[in-house]
């Protein structure tokens, strides 16, 4: 039976780990390579790096981080943030990333999703959707949550599936950094709309939130940053908790 995945995410800036609250107010806290190794040794099903300020700054530090991590961690490694072109994707994959998540550029130029899935295979193309509720629908935001594209998140999710995305990483902008739980309504609506796996993100504050993401949000995988990063819970504790709630996990 296929297991639900737990994916710790590390926000990386200038080669160092940070975690923002609502994408601002960053704290510096550690070496991403060491942190990733701790996660993979602890049973993380995948590791995710998000290069948060990559859209604006020098990106070369992330290549070095990815290269060093991929020599130490033998679970899948996803890297996102500032991925704009086929060339960016190629470089990250060559450094040892297994998947690349594309956010802003997928909105601005959906062809990049089509082209990259054709060139590298859907298995390495994750489309990251930052969505925020507006009335009774959700809209897609870009540039790290700064710009509202006005695009309907559900329709966009379907379009990305059709363009060749292998997975969707859906972050609720309303919940990110709040620790009050995933927007399970958003997750469930997108998961029912598409036939590719959904990774839920944004808002995890305790282990029940992970359970909700899978049971109520219908997510194939749950991503969390701060609960793991600040040592509130270990990946192992999270897995044991999910297991106790009847969710299939790799232990």
């Amino acid at each position: 039976m296929l297991k639900n995945r737990i994916i710790p995410c590390l926000d990386v800036k200038n080669g160092r780990v940070v975690k923002g609250i609502n994408f601002v107010d960053l704290k510096d806290a550690g070496d991403p390579v060491e942190q990733a190794k701790i996660y993979s040794d602890g049973g993380a099903d995948e590791i995710c790096f998000l290069d948060i300020t990559a859209s604006n700054e020098n990106r070369d530090t992330i290549y070095d981080v990815v290269e060093r991590t991929s020599k130490k961690c033998f679970v899948p490694l996803t890297v996102g943030g500032g991925v704009r072109s086929i060339d960016d994707i190629n470089k990250l994959l060559n450094c040892g990333a297994d998947k690349v998540s594309i956010n802003t550029s997928a909105v601005e130029n959906p062809k990049v999703v089509l082209d990259s899935s054709k060139k590298f295979g859907s298995q390495c193309v994750v489309v990251a959707i930052d969505a925020k509720k507006n009335g009774n629908k959700w809209e897609v935001f870009t540039h790290g949550g700064r710009n509202n594209s006005g695009i309907d998140a559900l329709e966009y999710a379907k379009k990305m599936e059709d363009s060749g995305a292998g997975e969707l990483l859906v972050t609720s902008m309303d919940r990110d950094g709040t620790q009050i739980g995933y927007d399970v309504d958003l997750m469930n609506k997108i998961a029912s709309k598409v036939n590719i796996p959904l990774i839920a993100s944004g808002g995890v504050g305790n282990l029940d939130h992970l359970v909700d993401g899978i049971k109520l949000g219908n997510a194939s995988a749950v991503l969390a940053a701060s609960i793991f990063h600040y040592g509130k819970y270990s990946v192992k504790e999270a897995k044991e908790y999910l297991d106790s709630k009847g969710i299939p996990v790799r232990i």
């Binding site: 296929l2 297991k3 995945r5 298995q123 292998g166 796996p197």
Partner: peptide, 9 residues
């Protein structure tokens, strides 16, 4: 869901 992605026994 397809692809079949993740850990299986």
């Amino acid at each position: 869901k397809l692809p079949h992605i993740g850990w299986n026994q």
